[in-house]
């Protein structure tokens, strides 16, 4: 005899998992905010909606998305990770082509883990994230690198309107036909609006504030030395570092590098190569 048991007054519909899809630099992502995440449903809703708004402009890549599961801090990701990292109380655990974010309590934590993950999954895709502002001029991307205070946001604010891809973290990828810079949702103090587009890289410029505007070429080895301390990278694994150095070495050989001495005014654009 079979007896069917149930709770007649509870509908057989679980709260849906909220899914968010976006793509950055032609890399598609699918983020799951599961229905059992956190006891505070208001918090997960806020997290989901703020992420949806920040990444709304970044759509359109083809291919199987890279899955990210946002889980509560008590739920430990299983297995030895290919890559893991912690940012304050939030943790990233990446294994077998899937990532788990745990302990994410606010949008800054989510964005930080996403940048860390992205720096890792760009390795097989011949790309890297660089502390740099990127401005598109005449259809080509000018990448201005330097640490905080070097003048990235200042330079972005002096750029012709609507042509800034980012003022803080640039994404460069080597593709068929050469290096391209992509817009990213990662911004510093100057936010012109999300630009989900890309352009071939015209050059990388090290920012040096000076009384006069002047451009001087950098040798390949010098450009590599400029790139290394400005790259966002969070893995100490030898194989990953070898791969990163190979990618950066290629960039230093193939992209023209320059020192850009500039004063804080719009005339800086006059000394840049056309």
């Amino acid at each position: 005899m079979r007896r069917h048991l149930g709770v007649p007054h509870v509908a057989l519909v679980r709260r849906p998992t909220q899914t968010l899809e976006f793509s950055i630099g032609s890399v598609p992502f699918r983020v799951f905010f599961p229905n059992d995440y956190m006891s505070d449903r208001e918090a997960v809703n806020t997290l989901y909606h703020s992420a949806a708004a920040r990444y709304a402009a970044f759509q359109g890549a083809d291919g199987e998305p890279f899955a990210i599961r946002v889980v509560d801090s008590d739920e430990l990701a299983e297995g030895v990770p290919d890559f893991s990292y912690e940012w304050q109380e939030a943790r990233l655990h990446c294994r077998a082509g899937e990532a788990v974010f745990s302990g994410v309590r606010h949008e800054y934590a989510f964005d930080s883990l996403l940048r860390m993950l992205f720096s890792w999954i760009l390795l097989p895709r011949s790309g890297f994230l660089l502390h740099a502002a990127t401005v598109v001029r005449n259809g080509r991307a000018f990448v201005f690198t330097g640490r905080s205070g070097a003048g990235k946001s200042t330079l972005a604010s002096l750029a012709p309107e609507g042509s800034v891809l980012t003022d803080e973290i640039s994404l460069l990828r080597c593709e068929e036909g050469g290096w391209r810079a992509y817009g990213t949702p990662f911004w510093g103090e100057f936010r012109a609006g999300d630009v989900n587009t890309s352009a071939p890289v015209a050059g990388i410029f090290r920012l040096v504030q000076a009384p006069e505007n002047r451009v001087a070429p950098l040798r390949q080895a010098e450009l590599l030395r400029v790139l290394l301390p400005n790259v966002l990278f969070f893995s100490a694994q030898p194989a990953a570092q070898r791969r990163l150095l190979e990618i950066l070495g290629g960039a230093a050989e193939e992209i023209p590098g320059h020192d850009l001495e500039f004063r804080k005014e719009r005339t800086v654009w006059e000394v840049l190569p056309a």
Binding site: R219, Q220, A221, L224, P238, R242, L245, L248, G249
Partner: peptide, 11 residues
């Protein structure tokens, strides 16, 4: 260690 030759130098 990770190393790369570039432009006659080595990093």
């Amino acid at each position: 260690v990770a190393w790369r030759a570039i432009d006659g130098e080595t990093v």
